[in-house]
Design a protein around this nucleic acid. Structure first.
Length: 254
DNA sequence: ATGGCGCGCGCAGCGCGA
């Protein structure tokens, strides 16, 4: 089973890229972030025609998450229970006995800002909820744009980024707290190329210079991690015309 | 090098992302 996550930065703009990528990569489950579409405008038919069932929770202009799967989606739930939030950032569903959580973590804007505080609060609520989800669902996969680069090797220029949002110690501690629940960063289960990133700024020719961050992640419970045979970043969609600034991350489970 | 890009909204130019 191939599980993938991709922040598409507007599904309206990126739908042709997504459909091409589904056809060429044949993932079984795909978590999308930043769809930026109200549910009434979600391109359900195009995605169903490509052979995928779909669940989505969107809003106008910002955020928006979706789960695509070749097998039926059950127990679909939007948001973090008990955490009141207008922003559509969380969607979970069960696919063939695997619980899938699709996440779009807050950006945080700048350390110390209101949005940064919201990011840390969001992560606290996420941790408390995932603890319960893990107890309920031993086969849990958490995929998404987590907006945190876990370590300096996940940052193209750690000196320039030191202490900044996405790499600050409180954020990294929040991500480690998820790992501490019993999740594994599937990417680091394997030897990986140096300077592997999943996002590159549109500006400053950042992709050409490989000036990126690894902020899109697939976390697996130990029951799933044991069955994980690979985790890769697919840079191909980032090379297309009008790309998303993020590119897909894929985990393969046996 | 923090500017520079790309998105939505909506029709100019701003807020936002990371």
């Amino acid at each position: 089973m191939k599980l993938a996550t991709w922040n598409v930065n507007s599904l309206n703009v990126r739908l042709p890229h997504l459909l091409d990528w589904l056809a060429s990569s044949q993932p079984d489950v795909v978590c999308l972030q930043e769809t930026k579409l109200v549910d009434a405008k979600f391109p359900r038919e195009a995605i169903e025609s490509a052979g995928y069932q779909v669940a989505f929770a969107g809003q106008k202009t910002y955020n928006g998450v979706a789960i695509l799967a070749r097998s039926p989606l059950a127990e679909i739930e939007a948001g973090i229970p008990g955490f009141a939030d207008e922003q559509k950032r969380v969607l979970s569903a069960t696919v063939t006995s695997t619980r899938v959580a699709c996440l779009y973590a807050p950006n945080g804007q700048a350390v110390g800002s209101d949005k940064y505080e919201y990011k840390l609060r969001w992560y606290e609520a996420l941790r408390d909820w995932l603890r319960m989800e893990l107890a309920r669902h031993p086969r849990l996969a958490v995929l998404g744009d987590l907006n945190i680069a876990p370590e300096d090797r996940d940052v193209h220029d750690p000196k320039a980024w030191e202490g900044q949002v996405h790499v600050s110690e409180p954020e990294r501690a929040a991500l480690r707290a998820l790992i501490g629940l019993g999740l594994e960063d599937s990417f680091r289960l394997f030897v990986q190329p140096e300077k592997s990133f999943s996002w590159w700024d549109y500006r400053m020719a950042a992709f050409r210079r490989n000036a990126g961050l690894r902020i899109d992640h697939i976390l697996l419970s130990s029951a799933l991690a044991r069955r994980c045979s690979a985790c890769t970043i697919d840079k191909a969609p980032r090379k297309l015309e009008r790309p998303s600034d993020h590119t897909p991350v894929i985990a393969e489970l046996s």
